[in-house]
Computed example of a mutant assay.
Amino acid sequence: MGAGHTHALYLDRGGRVHRLAPEVKIVAVLLFTIVVVVTPPAEFPAFAGYLVLLAGVAAVARVPALWLLKRATIELPFVLLAVALPVFGHGERIDWLGLSLSVEGLHGAWNILAKGTLGVLASLLLAATTTMRDLILGLDRLRVPAVFTQIATFMLRYIDVLADDARRMRIARLSRGYDPRFLWQVKAFAVGVGSLFLRSYERGERVYLAMVSRGYTGRLPHAESRKPATREWALAATLPLISLGIAVLA
Rank of each mutant, 00 (worst) to 15 (best):
I136N: 03
R93Y: 03
S102Y: 02
L142E: 02
L209A: 11
G138W: 00
Y178A: 13
I151H: 04
A152Q: 06
L125E: 00
M155F: 13
S100R: 15
G177N: 10
S213N: 03
T131M: 05
R157V: 07
K187P: 07
L162D: 07
F148D: 00
G194C: 13
V144D: 03
D140Y: 10
Y158H: 02
Y178M: 12
F197M: 13
K187L: 11
M132A: 13
Q150F: 07
Y201T: 02
V161S: 10
R214H: 06
L118P: 09
T131S: 08
A122V: 05
L156K: 04
L183M: 12
R167D: 12
L99F: 12
A188L: 02
W184S: 12
L124E: 08
V103L: 06
L101P: 14
D165A: 06
F182H: 15
S195A: 13
Y158P: 02
V161D: 12
R199V: 06
A152T: 04
L99Y: 12
K187T: 11
R203G: 07
R203N: 12
A163Q: 04
A146G: 07
V144Y: 01
A109K: 02
G194H: 08
M211S: 06
G119R: 00
L183I: 12
G138V: 05
Q150Y: 01
L99D: 07
P180I: 00
L156A: 10
L162G: 11
L118Y: 12
E205W: 12
L121H: 06
L125Y: 05
R170W: 08
R203C: 10
W110M: 13
L106P: 03
V120M: 14
G177R: 10
D165F: 02
A127E: 08
M155E: 13
D160A: 11
W96L: 14
R157H: 08
S200W: 05
W96F: 14
P180W: 04
L196P: 11
L156E: 06
A190H: 07
K115S: 08
T117M: 14
R199Y: 02
A190L: 15
V147R: 04
V161M: 06
R168Q: 06
V212G: 01
A188H: 03
L156F: 07
A188C: 01
L97H: 07
D160P: 13
Y208F: 14
D164C: 01
Q185I: 13
L101R: 11
L124W: 03
I171C: 03
I136V: 14
R141G: 03
H107G: 14
V212C: 00
A166I: 09
V103E: 05
V144R: 05
L162K: 04
P180K: 01
K187H: 15
I94L: 15
D165L: 01
A190W: 12
M132G: 14
G108S: 12
L196M: 15
M155R: 11
M211E: 08
I94P: 04
A152C: 06
L125F: 00
D140I: 01
Q185T: 13
R170E: 08
L174Y: 14
F154W: 13
L139C: 01
G204V: 01
F182R: 15
G98D: 10
R167G: 10
G194V: 11
G177P: 04
A114C: 11
S213L: 02
A163E: 10
D164T: 02
A188S: 09
R206A: 07
M132D: 14
A122Y: 03
L198G: 07
S100Y: 10
F189R: 05
S195Y: 09
R93L: 07
Y158G: 05
V147S: 02
F148E: 00
